[in-house]
Design a protein around this nucleic acid. Sequence first.
DNA 1: GTAGAATGAAACTAATTCGTATCATTAAAA
DNA 2: TTTTAATGATACGAATTAGTTTCATTCTAC
Lengths: 216, 216
Amino acid sequence: MDSATPASPVRKRGRPTEAGRVERRGQILDAALPVFLEYGFGKATVDRIAAAARVTKRTIYTYFGDKDGVFTEMQRRLAANVSGEPLRTETLESLAARIVYGLHSAQMIGLHRLVIAESLRFPELARRLHDNGDMRHIARLADHIRAEHGQAAAAHAEQLYALLLGEDYRRRLLGLLEPVTAAEAAVHARSALAVIQLTTASPLSGAASAAGAPST
Amino acid sequence: MDSATPASPVRKRGRPTEAGRVERRGQILDAALPVFLEYGFGKATVDRIAAAARVTKRTIYTYFGDKDGVFTEMQRRLAANVSGEPLRTETLESLAARIVYGLHSAQMIGLHRLVIAESLRFPELARRLHDNGDMRHIARLADHIRAEHGQAAAAHAEQLYALLLGEDYRRRLLGLLEPVTAAEAAVHARSALAVIQLTTASPLSGAASAAGAPST
DNA sequence: GTAGAATGAAACTAATTCGTATCATTAAAA
DNA sequence: TTTTAATGATACGAATTAGTTTCATTCTAC
């Protein structure tokens, strides 16, 4: 989180070009992310963010107004990246493995930890993370389940998602587990699909809608 | 979180009895919990805790040394309460419903949110929460599954636990969902048991160990 | 009874940190 | 060329807050 900025050795002073302004803005947000992830919102000082971005505090306040502004803008930028474009040729199994791998990554865990911690102070931030991240994942899982196992089975997409996260996801949030490799993620995904009877080998029959459907 | 302390109208000053000291200690920790839950560790000031406990800052520092001391002692006290004694006459279904209801409660969600937020600063606090809370739940689920569905099915206790928490648990952490009622928890639990084929109606056959077992 | 421990009340210290201001400097704009 | 916006560097103000100290007080311990 420190050696990732070998960019400009010495920064020029005067008025920057318009392109320079755009670049600097992104530079600040990119630098703010790891700082927030490491320290959390409260302990992440503006001075530290400024140092990481190789920019003075003054510039940060010019661009974002205050610390909250940096935080929300950073999250807004992340939300745009989270929604990766769907790969056309993808099976349910490979999609599940990708989700597991991505959600257990250090960056995602850090972001989730941060958003959970500040969910009371920044409720719409939590809303964005859930809508743009989780709900899209669930919808995409539902699409694949529907294609491979029929309409009835698609109702279990959310439960499948919960299984893909699993207790390991919570262990990651609690700092009790290291990030998983892609291979481990694939194994985990297969195990989840198997227990919910969504492997391609044994598709779900018609007796899917068991107990009361989740009301939420 | 404020009208819950109509205790002593006016506190005496002088030296307290030994019993009084024990009581005051608990009083401080009890008052600290809701303050930490509401504000988080960073924004929970010692002054606020002192006010909530009807005690002066001075007393808090005498008892706990510093703010971290209050925090860790509070969590240590909670850990003792989390492990509720097992009810002898309980089915897997009722146990599952109890777990769902308890983990979605406002107090538990607040505690988890807090521990997740501070897991980097207080790693052993996260460890305690996981060992004394989650792992005991999983073990108890495994016991019931073993009794009702055989040894092979018990391997899925952790996956069942993940389903019992579900996406709703994460929505609770993110502040996007209100606590569930006991009835809703029961429905949720039945749905989880059904999807994992652990309802008493249709017990799991021998074809349980599907893909690679979780490696964690 | 007396000494001293523990507390309330409240002021105080020291450190942190958000946000602003000053001054020099560079380059875009006019 | 002149003007001006934006920046670096740095100092500063104001607010918050962890932790300490002082003084009076009241009760336990002996």
